[in-house]
Amino acid sequence: MIALAGVYHPGSSALHRCPAGIKLFVLCVVGTTAMIVGSLPVLGAGIVLLAVGYAIARIEPRAIWRLSRALLVVVAIIAVIQALVSGLTAALVLAARLLLLVGAANLLTLTTPTSALIDVIERVLGPLRRFGVDPGQVGIAVALTLRFIPVIATQAARIREAQAARGVRSYRSFLLPLVISTVRMADGVGEALTVRGFQAGGARHG
């Protein structure tokens, strides 16, 4: 059984066996193309190809549905607003772009071990070392982002609930506690990294 988030789901499909570097490169190409091309048929074809990708990776349709439910709601809301502001075509283009981007990114993380993702980011960013960038740390930061998106989302839902219970409804009273709890969490994550041997300035025992 596959669980709820776009986290690595081990498998033996062609997409699983494909090197992480190639998948990351394809994701970048798809992302850039989706942002440049404004043609609905092309974006539509992209989404069909994406669906084929999920089939190749042998991700169950039920799992895809669970993964994309929330995304579809968000995309629908954004599309409706966009339709009211700038028309139906623009709304459809935007919705297709979002689906393609998020869907492709999820396909990458579903079929790629996080450690392989960190490795490839570390390698690709290697040349930036001379400018003071620590590629290992960037790789780990990307992995941490994947891990903490659902945690922050849960926290946001909790704050919403607490405020609804007190009859409060404002963006400021929602964002402030969320930012504070996220910053506090980041402190904790920093300490956990430190005690597990990942120190600032180099991702190894130092």
Binding site: Y8, L146, G188, A203, R204
Partner: peptide
């Protein structure tokens, strides 16, 4: 190297997306 530290809130100590990946992450260094 000779000490480990476990904090109160497990949410901030689990650093990788899945259970197995988090265990493997400890060995990365």
């Amino acid at each position: 190297r000779v000490t480990g530290f476990v904090f109160q809130d497990p949410d901030t100590q689990i650093l990788m997306p899945t259970v197995a990946e988090d265990l493997a992450f400890s060995l990365r260094p």
